[in-house]
Every structure is written in structure tokens, then in C-alpha cells.
Design a protein around this nucleic acid. Structure first.
Lengths: 340, 340
DNA sequence: CTTGTTCTTCAAAGCGCTTTGAATAATTCT
DNA sequence: AGAATTATTCAAAGCGCTTTGAAGAACAAG
């Protein structure tokens, strides 16, 4: 059933039917009702491709999804997506996900823009320098970043968590507790969120006259296995660290397992603070020793980004173009005074 | 840059340019090269909405994503998606994800079909009865299920894991080890994969003259917290179970924590077998006591589904319409003889 | 009973692409 | 050389929708 068939059936022109359906005023209430009813009965749904072609709008948000054989599902990604979806469903938006190998992302974005399939682009996993950001900056499609590039010039719309501040504050707490030997279990080095977390930690250490030895810095994907292995390596050091900052609760999960396995007591022998993205399947308060965390909900970020993108597209946005969310430091049992 | 502009620029007709770009034979090699080069230089990318409108094809797979405030990211979902994406990227396919509240999924699928945005539909989380399956059955769009409805009539294309067989085999092993008191930690009751796992377990028990008391059956989302709580409840029973079947390693993670907390020894005091979807972030072999599992890779399933769907659309499919994958039973240290 | 307004409705153009059917140019065959 | 093929290229129609510009119907005003 298409518009022509529907209008033939009603003995009306496509114009009138289209207008009736889209709520334009120049159509009598009587016909509007008749049209609406017929559409209902026949189950008529407009063809989005045609709509998109005619209007240039499609109520859709595009995103590129990194794909490679060695990349598995990322719980952080799906948590974020669920937030985005929650907002999208309210406004009848959908997503177009273009999978791309990591070295082909720029092209994937280009295709996405040119495809005429999406009204806006969302971008995450910001690196620095980030050619994808340059591309979006110079194109005319609305877009929004989750994260920022490095430096202080932010002439692009973003939503980011104050990662530097989060880890700075976390480190401060551990310093106050008397810790001197720190380790960092971070996300992939190329991501700016990881860079900023490291900077935050180093800044706090520098203020205390301390430094972070490079072999006590670990970069990897944020999974429990990676955390387990990294912690084992940390603990194998002659002078093992007493304070560990961890970029995700997923990493922390593995780290804690390694700590237990080594017969050490979390919160006593070793203190740990993890960044908590509020993954719905991994809550820090449910760890055997509840985790002290810096918290910022990834799902909430997703929802907010959806909201901002959609409002921009509907032309009603009075939301800020740049947002920096502070993470909350929530103290639980995994932090304690440095062992004597 | 659109086709008209590109062809004007080249002094050719749109027809010729289009044909050159799409590899049709009726265009001279010289012009083809000229066109290809110009397309390259100008960065011309065809408008997919227009392409879709003209051809009825769009190289895109549609899927509905459940969305509700209380639903968070599901690592199983993203693991699956990464498999699907891996296959899609090879063939330049993309996804259209329509978020929908759980009670509006049928409508979301209808919209997706009518939208003209997708060439095929993928469906997961099969329930029974499943109105979505009925809808797809009666529509003419290609589709593929991950999972099956109940009963033996499967006149629709699917890929499923033999969940019944997996849990049957797992239970058999535990029975051989002398276990008599079983518990089941399952996914949501409404999903057919959960139903079948329960049936598999009950069948094995029945053959041994045993039954599964209803208070030793737990249904919930498959997260570690849920596993933790469920196991605590199991252990609080006067006669606690000695053998537990667990629908996911995520559940097992929590379950193991509860077991440790209770001072019990996994593999000795209590045996546990989990179904392993091969989540890239949670490997059973990395548990402090490596987990005995029934294994079937969710990512591989995603890739296979992508492959089948794409081959169907490209009209070259000689792949089977129905597939039932057996899960492997991999014995590790979390299973042992029943305590005396 | 005109004329001027407002309300409804419509025909047709256009969005960017593919594809059919026809025309033109280049080759090959008598 | 002229006819018959074959290789290239093109104009135009069509995919399903929105939107502009115009026309017809209904009504109030002069």
C-alpha cells in the first residue's frame, strides 16, 4: 500500500492525503478523519526512503560501529546504546549503524553522510588527533561527540565526562590515605578518555612529589581478563603498588580476582578505585568488597546525547553545545589507609 | 555532489555514469575509468535513499532493539552484534535499528518493513507464542530468527543453539558425578531459550527419577548481580543444592561470588556448569576456579546470521534455512563428585 | 448579482537514483 | 562501398513521497 493507492481508494489526490497525514491545516477535518481512518485500516505506513528523498529528513541518527575479528562485544557500548535508544524511541527516531574496520572509519562516515540515510552523526571513542572529528567539523551535517579531543580548543559539540578531574580526585583521596605507590589500569592508550585519566592521576601525584613508573601503567581493552592479567603483573613487581586506579569496573573485576588469588586483602593491603560507568550488569556495590568508584552513567550520557541530537534536528534546541559532566567519587570499602 | 552534477562535469549522461559506477558491461573501459576517477576525486557517494527508492534494495538489515528505562545494555546483545557487524562490513551492509518498548515491537517491525529502509529483518529473543514471528511469516520480506518458538513445527528460517541438548548433557554429567539436588539459574522465563534449557535439565532429572523443586529455579536477566542474589537464596535453603546449572557466565560470576562468600568451595562443596556465550569480556577459564561450561559462541552466531541474510539478499544462498548448533560441553574445575 | 475572501482540493514538479527503449558511432562482413 | 552488426551513449520514465502554484467551491461583503 502506497500513497497513490491510498488516495485512489479515497478518491482524493496524493497531496490532500499527504497533508492530512502530516497534520497540515489546509485540509478539512472531515477528510482528515476519513484519511486517518483509511490509513489505519489499510495499515499504510509511508516509505521512509521516499520521504527522506523528498524532505531531506528521515528521523535517523547515524553511527559508525567499529568492527574487526578481534573486537568483541563491548558492554560499555551497549550500555550507552540503550540510553540513546531510550531517547530515540520517544521521538520515533532510529539508528543507522555502519560497521567499519578501524582503519576505514573516516570513509564509513563519509558514506553515511552522503548516503542520505541519516540526519545526524554520533561519534564516540575519540582519539587525538581524530580525522573523523575534522571530517565532521568541515561537513554540514549535525553531529555530536561523546568525548573530546585533547587541547583546550573545543569548537565542536560534545558531551564528555571530566575524566581528568575524576582520576585527579580519586588519586587525591588515596594520597590522603597515605598511599605512595600507585598503579594505573587504563583503557586503550589512543583514546582521549584514557589520556585524560592518566593526566589526572599524574597531576595529583606530581602535587605530592610522586611519579608514575611506566611499568605500573597498563593500557588495554576494558575486560575482566585484561584486568586480571594486568594486576598479576603489578603484583609481581618487587615493590608492589598499594593503590590502583582502574578505568572500568570490568577491569576491576579481574583485578580483584588477582588480588584475592594473591592472598591480599582489598581495602587493606591494596586499595582500588574504579571508574564506574554504571553498567547494568556489573555493579560495584555488589563486589565482595564493595568498590570505591568515580561514577558517571554511560546510559545517562547516551540518553542525553540522543536528546540533544534530536532537539537539534527538530530545531528546538536550547540545550548547551558543550557539556562536561563531573563524576561522583563514591567511597566504599575497597579503599583504606596505606599499609605501614 | 550528486549524479547529475557528476555527469554534467564529465559531459556524460546520468545513465552512462550510473552504469560505469555499477559495473555494467555496456560502457567502454575508457569512459569507465574516467568516471571512476572523477567519482574518486569529487568524493561522490550515491544517495542510498534514492538508490533504495529506485532499486528496492539498500544493503541494509533491520532489527528491533528493545528499549525501556529499566533495560540496560546487554553484553550478550553487543557480542552478537559484533558478529553480525563483522559479516556486514565485508559486504558493505549496514543496520537499521529501531528501538521499541517491549509492548510495541510488532508495530516497530511493521514500520521497519514498510519504511523501505531495510531489505531483511533479524529477530532475537524469541518468546512463545511470538506475534513478531507470525508477522514476519505472513510478510514477504526476508527474515531470520535467532532462536525458535516452541513445538516441533519450524516452518521459518532460524539459527538456534540446541539449548535443551546442552543442559541435558550438562545435567547428565552432574548426575554421573552423583549429584541429586539440582538448582537452575535461568534467563527470563518468557524466552524460549530459557524454556528449552529448563526442559533439558528436567528431562535428565526425570530419567534419574529426580525432580526440580520450583524454589530451586530462578529466572531473571543474566547479570552478575542477579546471579549473586539467586545463589544466596539457593544457599539459604535447609538442604542446599550441590549442583547448579547457570544460563550465562555473567550469572555464574555472581553465583561464584556468593559461593565464596558462604565459605563453600566450588567444584567440591558445590558444582556449577554455566552456559558460555563466549563473551569476549568474561571467559570461564579465567574464573578463580575455571568453569565447566556448555559453549556456543554468540558472536559466531551473529556472523553466521549476517552471512545467511546477506547471501539470501544477494540471491546466491545455498546455505540451509534452519540450523541447530550443538553446544560443546567443556569440563573444567567447577564440577566434581557430589559431596558425601 | 457581482466581486473579493477564505477554504479545500488538485495537478505537476522535484528529490537522486536505476533502467528501459531508442539513437548514434564504431566495426565487421559482403 | 554499402549493409549488417556491435559497441556506446543518451533521453525519459519511474520509484513514493512532499510541496509549490493554481484552480474550484463556498461564503461573506458590497
Amino acid at each position: 500500500m502506497n500513497l497513490k493507492q491510498l488516495s485512489d481508494r479515497l478518491g482524493l489526490s496524493q497531496t490532500t492525503v499527504s497533508r492530512a497525514l502530516n497534520g497540515y491545516p489546509e485540509v478539512s477535518e472531515a477528510t482528515r478523519e476519513r484519511v486517518l481512518k483509511a490509513a489505519q485500516q489499510t495499515g499504510y505506513k509511508p516509505n521512509k526512503a521516499a520521504q527522506r528523498l523528498a524532505t531531506g529528513k528521515a528521523k535517523s541518527i547515524g553511527l559508525v560501529m567499529q568492527s574487526a575479528p578481534e573486537i568483541g562485544g563491548d558492554p560499555h557500548f551497549s550500555e550507552f546504546l540503550s540510553g540513546l535508544a531510550e531517547e530515540a524511541v520517544k521521538h520515533d527516531f532510529h539508528f543507522v549503524m555502519a560497521p567499519a574496520s578501524p582503519d576505514d572509519e573516516v570513509n564509513a562516515i563519509k558514506r553515511l553522510i552522503a548516503s542520505g540515510y541519516v540526519d545526524a552523526i554520533f561519534l564516540a571513542h575519540v582519539v587525538d588527533p581524530d580525522p573523523r572529528v575534522d571530517l565532521l567539523r568541515s561537513s554540514s551535517i549535525p553531529y555530536l561527540l561523546h568525548g573530546r579531543i585533547m587541547g583546550d580548543v573545543h569548537d565542536y559539540p560534545y558531551l564528555d565526562v571530566d575524566n581528568e578531574g575524576a582520576f585527579y580526585t580519586a588519586a587525591k583521596l588515596l594520597l590522603q590515605l597515605g598511599h605512595k605507590r600507585f598503579a594505573l589500569m587504563n583503557g586503550m592508550e589512543r583514546f582521549t578518555f584514557a589520556m585524560r585519566r592518566k593526566i589526572g592521576l599524574e597531576k595529583a601525584l606530581a602535587e605530592a612529589g610522586l611519579t608514575l613508573p611506566s611499568d605500573l601503567v597498563h593500557h588495554s581493552v576494558m575486560s575482566d581478563q585484561a584486568g586480571f592479567r594486568a594486576m598479576e603483573r603489578f603484583l609481581a613487581r618487587p615493590e608492589r603498588p598499594t593503590a590502583v586506579l582502574c578505568a572500568s569496573t570490568a577491569l576491576a573485576l579481574g583485578a580483584v580476582r588477582a588480588i584475592n588469588k594473591a592472598g591480599l586483602k582489598l581495602g587493606t593491603d591494596i586499595s582500588l578505585i574504579a571508574h564506574d560507568d554504571v553498567l547494568s550488569t556489573l555493579r560495584p556495590e555488589n563486589f565482595s568488597v564493595p568498590l570505591t568508584t568515580t561514577r558517571s552513567s554511560l546510559k545517562a550520557a547516551g540518553a542525553r546525547i540522543g536528546q540533544r541530537l534530536i532537539e537539534t534536528l527538530e530545531g528546538s534546541s536550547d540545550l548547551p553545545d558543550q557539556e562536561l559532566w563531573e563524576a561522583e567519587l563514591i567511597v566504599r570499602a575497597s579503599t583504606g589507609p596505606a599499609p605501614a
